[in-house]
Simulated scan of single mutants.
Amino acid sequence: MSELDQWVAEVAVELGLGDVEVPTREVLDVARDVAHNVLRPGAPVSAYLLGLAVAAGADPADAAQRISALALRRAAPGN
């Protein structure tokens, strides 16, 4: 178990989430895309919004891809 996996497990227990599957790679990809293509403070806020979307029933991979695509479109020339 990586240090990140251990931290995620500890936070999940602390928040009463139990043994929850966290799409760590997708969350990190969203944070990277937003931080590099939109603005740094947008990364954690976007990760939070991703969590809200998943809690409301969105597919984690789809929601992450949509946020990343939006960030990449913002960075595209002409935008």
Rank of each mutant, 00 (worst) to 15 (best):
L39V: 10
A56S: 13
R66E: 07
S68R: 12
V11P: 00
A69T: 06
A61E: 15
V8A: 13
A58P: 03
D19V: 08
V30P: 00
Q65C: 11
R73W: 00
I67R: 03
L52V: 10
L70S: 15
V38M: 09
R74Y: 09
E26Q: 15
V22G: 05
G57C: 08
R25Y: 07
H36F: 07
P23G: 02
L28V: 05
E21N: 12
V20L: 13
P77L: 04
D29L: 11
E3Q: 09
W7I: 09
L52M: 14
E3G: 14
R74N: 13
E26R: 07
S68G: 06
Y48D: 07
V13Q: 11
A58T: 04
V20T: 08
D33H: 09
L17D: 00
A12N: 08
S46E: 04
E10C: 02
D19W: 00
G57R: 13
A55T: 08
V38Y: 08
R74K: 05
A35N: 09
R73Q: 08
D5G: 15
V54E: 10
A69E: 12
A35E: 09
N79V: 10
A71N: 01
A12K: 06
I67C: 02
L49P: 01
A76C: 02
G51R: 14
E3R: 11
A61K: 10
L17I: 00
E14T: 03
W7G: 00
P77V: 02
P41L: 03
A61P: 06
R73Y: 02
R73K: 08
A43V: 03
A55I: 03
L70V: 12
A56K: 14
A58N: 13
A71Q: 03
G51W: 10
A53S: 13
N79A: 15
G57D: 09
A56P: 06
A64L: 03
V22H: 04
A43F: 08
A69W: 02
R32L: 04
L15C: 07
P23W: 00
L49E: 03
A47F: 06
D5A: 15
R40N: 10
E10S: 10
D5H: 13
L39Y: 14
A69M: 07
G42H: 12
V20E: 04
D33P: 04
V22K: 14
L49S: 00
G51A: 07
D19A: 14
L52K: 14
L52R: 14
L72M: 05
V54W: 09
L70T: 15
L72T: 01
E21H: 11
